[in-house]
Each structure stands twice: as C-alpha cells, then as structure tokens.
Design a protein around this nucleic acid. Structure first.
Length: 680
DNA sequence: GCAGCGAAAATATCT
DNA sequence: TTTTCGCTGC
C-alpha cells in the first residue's frame, strides 16, 4: 500500500523506498514485524519491558521514511510526558523529519479539534477548560444555589458530586446505578443529584465551559452532528497510533474508531496485565474487542522482556499470578543474573525514609545516576516523610503525581483573573476574583455577576449604581482587566501584571505565609514564559498542571539531575535501573477503597505489578510496622500488603531494618553481609 | 451580608 | 495538613 501511494505522488516509477535506518539490525523479529506492518488495523499486545516504546518510535520513523507526511500521523498517549518523550526520540532517530508528527493525550488532541469547531456545537471560540477543581467549584456553586446544602440529612460534597458525574460519563453508567453501588448513603438524594447533574451540564453550555470529560464527549458529538467535519478532520489522520490501549475507555475507543474512519490505519498497543485505570472507566475489553471492531486486524505480540533481570520478573510474575482473574502471560527475561529483589521491613516510616536515602546514596556511589532511580508509591502523600528526609540529605528530587501547584489557592486566584479576560462568561472565575475584594462575599459577588453576564461591557464597572460601596476596588480591578484585554500581549507579562495587582490581596488573605506563596507566583511567571498567548497558557495548564515539587527542587539544587519520585500511575511506561516501592501496606496498596471488590483488588495487584516491572536491575519493596498519622500526631500499626505476604524466599530476600547501634543513627539490614553507608 | 474564629471532618490513582 | 461548617459580632 505504501509503495503504490509513493508511485501515485511521484510520476517517475520508484521501485523501492530506500530506508535510512537499518530496522532489522535494531529490532528483534517480532518488533520488526510491527514496524513493517502494512496499512490497515493492527493490534500489538506487548508485555512490560518488551520494547513497546522503542517499537512505536521506530514505527513512526518507518512511516515517515515510507513517505507518509509527518503531520498526518497522530500518536495518542496517556500523558503529555510520554508523548513528548516519544516524539523527541523519534525526531532524533530520523534527523528531525519526525518533528511534525502530532502527539498528545486524547484530551489534548480533542481540544485542538474543538478549538477549531467549537462554534458548530454552540460553544464560544474561546471556551474555557475546567480542571477537576474548577469543575467541582461549578458544582458547588449550583449546589448552593439550589439550596441542597441545607438539606437535613447530609448532602454529598462538591468533590463527591463531580466524581460521581465524571464516573457516570467515563464508565457509561447512570447515576442511580452508581449511587447504589458506591454511595448508598446518598441514595435518598437521588432526585436532587440528578437535578444538579442536569443543571451542571446546562451551566457549562451557557457559560462556555468544558470539563475534561466534555473534551471527549463534545468531540464525539461534533463528529456525529457534522459528518463533514468528521471527514475533514479524520482525512488528515492517515495513521493513528494509540499507546496504552488497555487503559482507554469506551469514549476513547469510539474516538479511535472515528479518527481511523477515513483511512483505516490504526495501530493500538497495549497489555491487559497493566490495566490500571478501570476506576476511570478503562476497559481492557477494548483490546479484546479490537479485532471485532476493526475488521481485518493483524495481531502482533511482543513477549521478550529486555528490561528487567530474571529475579525481578519472577517476582512480578508471582505477584500477578495470584490475581483472581488469572493471566496466562508469563514474561521471560532475555537478561542473565541479577540480584534478588528485597522485601524491606522498617520499624516505622522514618526508618523507611532513611533506608531509601541511604540506599540511593550508596547506589549513586556505585555509579547509578539519580535520575535512573525512582521511588514509587500508591498515593501522592505516601512520600511526604521521604521528601523531608531527602531534603535533609541534600538529595535533589522531582515528584510526579499528587498535588499540583495549580491547586494552591494563590495560583488559582491569579489564574482566575486571566480566565475572566479570556472568557467573560466564566462565572466561577468571576466569583473567585470578586470575593477577593474586601467587603464582597458570596451574595454581592452573585449580584455583580448577574450584571456582568448581561452587559456588553463586562470590564467597565463605573456605571454600577447599586455597588457604590465597592466602586474604588472595582475600578482598579477594571483597570487591570481592560489592560490585559488590550492587544496581544505575551502571557508572562500578563501574569506579571496580575501578580502586581494581586500582591496586596495576597498579604491580606495569607498573612502567615505570604513569602512562600510569593515565590510560587514568581516561579509561575517563569512557566508562563513558555507560552505565547494567554489562551495557550490557560488551556495547557488545565490539561497539564504544574507539579508542585518542581518548585522546591529548584530551590534545593539546580545542578544535579534529580531522583524521581512518582505515583505508580504516573510512572507508567517508564523504566529505571533501581526502583523502590514504598508503603506497600494493607489499606494503601491495596487501597482501602478496593478491599471489598474483587475486580478492584485485582487492579491494585496489577498496579503493584506495574511498579515492580519498572525496575531494570535493583528492586526494593518496603513497608513499615508503625505509621505516623499526620492528621493528629497519633501512631498506628500497619500490616504489610497481602500482595507481599508469603513470598517464597527464592523470589525475594526479606530484610529487617534495625538501628545498628543505639548511639548513632546508622541503619543496618540485620544481615552481616549487607552494609549500608552511614548518613553523613 | 461579611469576616473571623475555632471545631470538625476528610483524606486516591489521572486527564 | 487542609478544607469546610457553623457560630458570633460588626
């Protein structure tokens, strides 16, 4: 197919394409088959560490070398980080020719489509994208407006409600069903919740707002309502490649089908054993159903693991084999030797942190760079104690997952000012901005917003009679907004202006930690410098929020490449020479939320499997006997996760951490053959 | 109707 | 640790 395509474009007969890259030398036969796959639908089942990313990259290069215009190739990945990395590597591989390939998340790609056609489905060109916190704020606004918060029995909070709405869309279940399953305590509020759901949907339409789910849903709606647009968009997608296909949900499956609807060239890559997004409606049946959905699918398999040593794989296989739903797959390593993974028991959290720090330092001595080591955990907060210890040991780190800088109140405040300039209909942002003013509370803000939404001069408050009391403050706000609105000013200079205006407010609202927050804001100006327009900045931030810890890292040490801290979910698809999995405890991994459902427990188990298979050479799985509850200073006993109970000793070595001598702080493994360096 | 205080509650994974 | 709720005084 590719060949005849080339013949059509060039008038002279070209018998064969000359490939610059020696594919057969760089790839094993299974990988090569994928890279050379003919046009049409293809499904690649690729176990952990089988060179899936590498294969995809070579596939991209191959397509480009075969004459497919790079801008007609779309690579859909799970995170922006993954897309960026793959496209960079492909670009290097084929001296820059892959640069034009479009890559990103489903949400990101849908956003780019919607930005062009938003008006066709009744949205303003400059619609706003709501992140999870924004969306919850909208829900909260409506919740209060409808008076549901005053109900006699407890009414669900904004986060719960938004979670419910989002789950309903992503898992294709109606709200009563979800309520009965997950929140039986709120079942009696079913009618109100349904009312709220409808109100939420209408509100977003009316104010030009889209949440994450809307990006997918509205794109599908757009395609359905306007087949010509669908054709126009998808005709430009000659090839679509989807990574981590096991983690796509129904909506994303439908989108893939739409994207491939003109050219039919779709390649999906996935591994059912690594499915860890069922909570978001991911359905690995998408993999099973792929050949049915796309007639003529060719199936490929990648089975040889190049990443991990045999002992690491054996432990991972063992963990997976205990799942209720059995997996037939067993990965085999192409490597030899390797040390047994360690199951490390620490007396308490502090010990665990000190152990990690000392081990990291020791491995660095042995020549492993910090960014080739990762500490993985179930929840963002599971690393708090470790973060303190790392700072104490002067070990620089980056953290992925967990809280984002965007969630900090002061950043949200600044963003809200930009949002109302971008989209004057964004009432939630208005509310936030107005309530920062002295003497303006929820009631006054609502009245002001009523007026703002109906006027054609939303940034001119001078004519406002009933709000005379506030006219001074409103005037300086108006000045700022009118200034920002003028011309096409650079995003970072707009951010600076807002911060300048916001300075006094910051001091008044957060008198205790003004300085710390001011530093965040300065950091934020730097980030804004990566974007040209205000709209670019806002949309990028909504989809790819700033990691909170990167701020602190820069403060610690700028020169050394940092150690990686990451939630397991965020570590998907990546690999490291040494991996520490910490806090492997009952109630943490598996999560307490998963304990009573088999399928959820299996997902937690796969999560640990994903964590273990990130390791190439060294693997440490740790847990502590005593935990410290951060909320009120208490201690509690913990149990090691059921997933690491009763692991035979030939699969992993049990280590017990003990204080080597009461007089100093050194740790010992209790094993005379294992020495740990003292912390200096 | 707003601000400030203290008590109480909650506390995932990601886009 | 942080957010939310409810009360009180202005």
């Amino acid at each position: 197919m590719a060949r005849s395509f080339v013949l059509k474009r060039e008038s002279a007969p070209i018998p064969l394409v000359h490939y610059q890259i020696p594919y057969a030398e760089h790839l094993n036969p299974q990988q090569l088959a994928v890279v050379e796959a003919p046009n049409g639908p293809a499904l690649v089942i690729a176990g952990a560490g089988t060179g899936k990313t590498r294969t995809l990259i070579y596939r991209l290069a191959r397509l480009v070398e075969s004459g497919v215009p790079p801008e007609e190739i779309v690579l859909l990945t799970f995170t922006r980080r993954a897309a960026r990395e793959m496209l960079n590597r492909a670009t290097v591989l084929l001296d820059g020719r892959c640069e034009g390939i479009k890559g990103g998340t489903f949400h990101g790609f849908c956003l780019s489509v919607l930005q062009r056609y938003a008006q066709q489905i009744g949205f303003p060109v400059r619609f706003s994208v709501l992140d999870a916190a924004d969306a919850a704020d909208v829900v909260d606004l409506l919740r209060t407006q409808q008076g549901f918060h005053q109900s006699k029995t407890r009414f669900p909070k904004k986060d719960t409600l938004y979670h419910l709405f989002s789950a309903s869309i992503n898992r294709q279940k109606d709200i009563p069903q979800l309520l009965a399953q997950e929140f039986p305590q709120y079942a009696k509020h079913e009618t109100e919740i349904l009312t709220l759901y409808k109100a939420y949907d209408q509100y977003k339409q009316k104010h030009g707002l889209m949440d994450y789910d809307d990006l997918l849903v509205r794109t599908l709606q757009l395609f359905e309502a306007h087949p010509t647009i669908r054709y126009e968009v998808c005709a430009r997608i000659r090839h679509v490649l989807v990574d981590e296909f096991q983690d796509t949900n129904k909506l994303q499956g439908d989108l893939v089908a739409a994207f491939a609807s003109v050219h039919g060239n779709v390649m999906a890559v996935g591994d059912d054993a690594q499915s860890i997004y069922a909570f978001r409606g991911a359905n690995f049946q998408n993999i099973m159903g792929f050949p049915k959905r796309f007639a003529g699918t060719t199936l490929y398999k990648l089975e040889e693991n190049y990443r991990s040593t045999p002992p690491i794989l054996q432990l991972a296989n063992h963990v997976l084999s205990q799942a209720h739903e059995r997996y037939e797959k067993e990965l085999f390593s192409r490597r030899d030797g390797g040390e047994l993974p360690a199951i490390v028991q620490a007396p308490d959290d502090r010990f665990q942190s000190r152990f990690v720090c000392q081990m990291v330092l020791q491995l660095r001595e042995e020549g492993i760079p910090l960014n080739e080591m990762a500490v993985l955990f179930r929840n963002g907060r599971d690393s708090y104690d470790l973060e303190l210890e790392l700072a104490r040991c002067n070990i620089p780190f980056v953290k992925y997952g967990g809280l984002k800088l965007n969630d900090a109140a002061h950043i949200k405040d600044v963003l809200a000012h930009l949002k109302i300039v971008e989209n004057p209909l964004d009432a939630v942002a208005w509310q936030r901005v107005l309530m920062l003013l002295k003497g303006i509370g929820p009631k006054t803000a609502q009245e002001l917003i009523q007026w703002i939404l109906t006027t054609d001069k939303p940034y001119d408050f001078d004519s406002l009679q009933p709000f005379k009391k506030h006219v001074g403050q409103l005037r300086s706000l108006a000045l700022l907004l009118q200034d920002l609105r003028k011309g096409e000013r650079l995003a970072s200079s707009q951010v600076s202006d807002v911060i300048h205006y916001y300075g006094p407010i910051l001091e008044r609202v957060h008198p205790d930690d003004t300085e710390k927050r001011r530093q965040d804001l300065e950091h934020f100006v730097g980030i804004a410098a990566n974007f040209v327009t205000r709209g670019d900045l806002l949309r990028a931030l909504a989809l790819d929020p700033i990691e909170r810890s990167t701020v602190e890292v820069e403060a610690i040490q700028k020169d050394e490449i940092p150690l990686v801290l990451s939630t397991i979910h965020s570590a998907k698809g990546l690999e490291y020479q040494a991996v520490f999995v910490i806090q492997v405890l009952e109630g943490v991994l598996p999560s307490a939320y998963a304990l009573n459902r088999r399928s959820a427990l299996d997902e937690e188990r796969r999560l640990l499997y994903v964590a273990l298979t990130r390791a190439k050479d060294y693997l440490f799985v740790s847990h502590s006997v005593l935990g410290y509850q951060r909320s009120f200073g208490g201690e509690y006993f913990t149990k090691p996760s059921r997933f690491i109970q009763d692991i035979p000793e030939h699969l992993a070595e049990p280590w017990q951490l003990v204080e080597s001598s009461p007089s100093n702080n050194e740790l010992s493994t209790g094993d005379p053959y294992l020495s740990l360096p003292s912390s200096s």
